[in-house]
Amino acid sequence: MIRLENISMTYPAGVTALQDVSLSIEKGEFVFVTGSSGSGKSTLIKLLLCEVKPTKGNIYIQGKNLGNIKRRKLPLYRRKLGVVFQDFRLLKDRNVYENVAFAQRVIGKSKQYIHHQVPQILEVMGLGDKLKAFPNQLSGGEQQRVALARAVVNHPIVLLADEPTGNLDPKNSMEIMELLEEINKTGTTVIVVTHNLEIVKAMKKRVITLEKGKIIKDERME
């Protein structure tokens, strides 16, 4: 499903983030990518989102080479992905419902469809009673659940999570992980970038470890 072939990435400033990385992730897999700061974890997410282009190598998703996607087709590709970040990236001037609805409005879904879908997904995320709350009225865990709802409301084939528990306490972190696992069970491929080894150990999934831009370990935790 996702295949990276000899990917190298050097930023214009001369910083090398990834060096000759090759890996493949199957459809429906749940994968952790770990490593210390500067190991290239976030660059991997940026490459998959087509925010940056590799300086060498090819990335294939569902057999399609990302390097061949035309700029105007990029939005259509990104609609297949869901993404959550450590800092949630919610729109502070909009309530929970509007933040999630925003993702559907942007891709041109009808008002009725949005009105039907958004409360449903928020219910699944345990936020059924917080539709009208604004982000600053929510806890960190709740905000991340809103971000998660926004990421999955359009049924992505891949969910990318960049340090999703970075700002959360252990209890909330585990709740988010459980939600990610639920999403994964529906068939969505989940890639979680984290340096929280406690969680990685607890989840017992495939773990890819990066160091200085290279894969040093790729193992399944038991």
Binding site: L49, P75, R78, R89, L91, V106, I107, N154
Partner: peptide
């Protein structure tokens, strides 16, 4: 921030 999110969730240039 909104523009960044729009781009990530697949909004076209036009949108």
């Amino acid at each position: 921030d909104e523009i960044a999110i729009m781009k990530l969730i697949g909004a076209t240039d036009g949108m």
